[in-house]
């Protein structure tokens, strides 16, 4: 409660205390601009890491529990081999269900490549069987051996071959996004520290006068800290709003666009960017406070 009271007192502040520091036009505008630009970038870094996180989860989770069996066989043996394969799969531990895709489903899958008017019946298209696995999965090597014996035309694809690198790429992308957010926070801190230090150095006379009339370091520091915290807060708020606007202008997630269009926020993810301005304010508060304490100790 007292912590909350301190925050309220800091926000409401003391108008006169703010007046003891002379208004400084260019530093103020630059600090606000830097905070806005960093917040804008932070929105994108957040969007990137959230989207790639979703992607990694989807590929890791959904695809891991499914695999495909492809049967290439002469027309005459196709249905027989399909039935044999389904029999094998149904008796395999770890397989939840196995289902042969219908003619229509197969032509839908091929439509993007060959166009909708392809006469599938005239082509020797392999039969696909969709396999759902339990969480622990099945023994792929054992299944391959059994299939080899009973269904010579079957090829088992457990998706690991292409899933692993994609999953890895998405995971790396997410780490990259998080590292970017951290770098942006650190850069913001560095820039605000430099600006605060410049402002403190430029106001050495003000500080000397305040010390002479009995102002404590805490009083002087607070005047500077308040100013920089509010500049950073305001700048970051503007940058976040602009960044969110830009993200909203991105095309919505869709199956046609692949994973690139998934870049954005979904559901509770929209709450993350709201945290950017207060975090920028907190970073500014800490950075300016430290700079002020350091500079004040150096001054007489």
């Amino acid at each position: 409660m007292s912590g909350f009271g301190t925050i309220i007192a800091f926000v409401v502040g003391d108008v006169q205390r703010d007046r003891v520091v002379p208004p400084s036009g260019i530093t103020a505008r630059l600090t606000g601009f830097a905070a806005a630009a960093m917040a804008f970038l932070a929105v994108f870094a957040l969007a990137l890491s959230l989207a790639s996180g979703r992607l990694a989860a989807r590929w890791g989770d959904e695809l891991a529990r499914s695999s495909t069996l492809r049967i290439s066989a002469p027309e005459a043996q196709m249905s027989e081999q399909t039935a044999a394969a389904l029999r094998v799969l149904e008796t395999t531990p770890g397989v939840v269900s196995a289902r042969a895709l219908t003619q229509e489903e197969q032509s839908r899958l091929l439509a993007p490549w060959f166009g909708p008017d392809l006469p599938l019946e005239a082509l020797p298209i392999p039969q696909l069987i969709e396999i759902s696995e339990t969480k622990d999965g099945y023994d792929a090597t054992g299944l391959r051996l059994r299939l080899q014996a009973e269904v010579p035309g079957a090829v088992l694809d457990d998706h690991t071959r292409w899933r692993k690198p994609l999953e890895q790429a998405a995971g790396r992308l997410r780490v990259l996004g998080i590292v970017s957010v951290l770098l942006i926070a650190a850069t913001t801190a560095a820039m605000i520290t430099l600006a605060a230090q410049a402002a403190l150095a430029a106001n050495a006379q003000v500080i000397a006068v305040l010390r002479l009339v009995g102002a404590r370091d805490g009083y002087i520091a607070q005047a500077f800290v308040r100013r920089f915290t509010f500049r950073a807060l305001g700048g970051a708020a503007v940058g976040t709003v602009l960044g969110l606007g830009a993200v909203m202008l991105l095309p919505a997630a869709s199956t046609q666009g692949g994973f690139l269009t998934g870049l954005g926020f979904q559901g509770a993810g929209w709450l993350w960017p709201v945290l950017i301005p207060p975090l920028a304010g907190a970073v500014a508060y800490l950075a300016t406070g430290q700079a002020a304490r350091r500079v004040l100790k150096e001054l007489a």
Binding site: V20, P22, V206, A208, R211, V213, R216, G218
Partner: peptide, 29 residues
């Protein structure tokens, strides 16, 4: 310490030869 000095200076009025002020605030302030 620095805060002790600040408190002591509230009890000692000092007039320097080269008086310095906060140049952005009026004399009354």
């Amino acid at each position: 310490n620095r805060d002790d000095h600040a408190l002591a200076r509230r009890r000692v009025g000092v007039v320097h030869q080269d008086c310095q002020f906060l140049d952005h605030l009026p004399v009354a302030d």
